[in-house]
Nucleic acid binder design. Sequence first.
DNA 1: AACCTTCTATGATAATTATCAGAGAGTAAT
DNA 2: ATTACTCTCTGATAATTATCATAGAAGGTT
Lengths: 229, 229
Amino acid sequence: MGNTTCTCEYCQLKNIFFAHVKSDELTNICDLKVERSYSKGESIIQEGDPITEFVYMKKGLVKLSKASIDGKDQIISFSKPFDFVSLLSVFSSTQYKYSVTAIEQTTVCILQLDVVRKYAEENALFAMDMMSNISQMTDKIILDNLEIKRKHLKGRIAHVLLYFSDYIYKKDEFELPISRREIAEYIGMTTENVIRTLSEFRKDEIIKIFGKNILISDKKRLKSISEFG
Amino acid sequence: MGNTTCTCEYCQLKNIFFAHVKSDELTNICDLKVERSYSKGESIIQEGDPITEFVYMKKGLVKLSKASIDGKDQIISFSKPFDFVSLLSVFSSTQYKYSVTAIEQTTVCILQLDVVRKYAEENALFAMDMMSNISQMTDKIILDNLEIKRKHLKGRIAHVLLYFSDYIYKKDEFELPISRREIAEYIGMTTENVIRTLSEFRKDEIIKIFGKNILISDKKRLKSISEFG
DNA sequence: AACCTTCTATGATAATTATCAGAGAGTAAT
DNA sequence: ATTACTCTCTGATAATTATCATAGAAGGTT
């Protein structure tokens, strides 16, 4: 984990989070902001941590997960640049109810929560922007989980592959940022069956597998499996 | 569906939604507000409807559901008094992505969305309260769905029974507001297996069933099934 | 290098869940 | 009263998914 600084003036995030924050205020925010980097596997937020910061993604990819009673982890969702990662609980609880872990080299920007609160209370348009952002993210999580829920094993695996291919990497060939076990934790199936299904897709020449590298060679079929299988 | 009016001054909702709205403004809001009643089964919001109103629960119980490609409905969650029902999408989309239907005699309060927006933009504390409310609700939906996901059929049914018993009705004996099929749509299982499992619980003397009326006679066991079964 | 752990992989078997079929009860409409 | 629903219920069987066992590959540590 390392800290660096940057000038927010030229950051893409500005237009998303701080569109309604005046230029001089932004400079102020910029001074108060901390940037942190995490390498793959590092923990960014631990379930139970007090919520004192407002964290958003600048670069990389993270997973949001929660430990269940029986010790197993469940993955809630993934977050990419311009997403909040402290979106759940941040305005409704004092402690995180889930963990955030880097699954790729990741950089986040951090503001103290009371600073964000102060700006939100003074600048309602900023508060509205934030609300809209949080709303969009939680919508996505809820509707994505609903999609997964209605599918069978094969459809769920297809869904995950398409998620990374179309939504995250926008390429047909990519390196899976998570293990087979983590896919299982995301879709609510066993690791063995995830592996088995991927092998099956390989045998059926829908995908090619080189370790963690996946090449989707028949996307049409994969989409059809995702929708109806 | 019927319209009535009430004085907001004495409404319990005031303390939840409008804690930071001044008394004279509240009178103003009260005048702009419409109250609507729906009987069991009536549709309150239809998937695809344009979002022009801000709807919150005053009395009763509703289900939030979404039709999937194959025509089947999936139930996302239930909302009870003091919940927003237009919580998803309301600040992030122009159209509803889910339907809301009364599953009990229900009364909702309705404000035009632009009125709410106006107040939120003028009164940041009100905006923050709203954000906190929406956040709490979406948190609950996400975490509840996660709980259901990690459980097997029996655990899921136990979970649903405890949800209505402990969270909605706060009684061990209650009338199930939804059909077996709707339970299936909520937990992602088939209607037959929902019925079968309820019968099993009855045979094991965990619950008593009189049509839609349920009496939980061994809550300890039901809780254990919910957690580990 | 030797050791340990996790990950990927596959097969056999057991458990869980879905599907199909049939039937009675309740409800609403004509 | 009859028809046409949907809902509840049960059994038999098929399909899906989990569990258990085993093993090689990969990565990290001492």
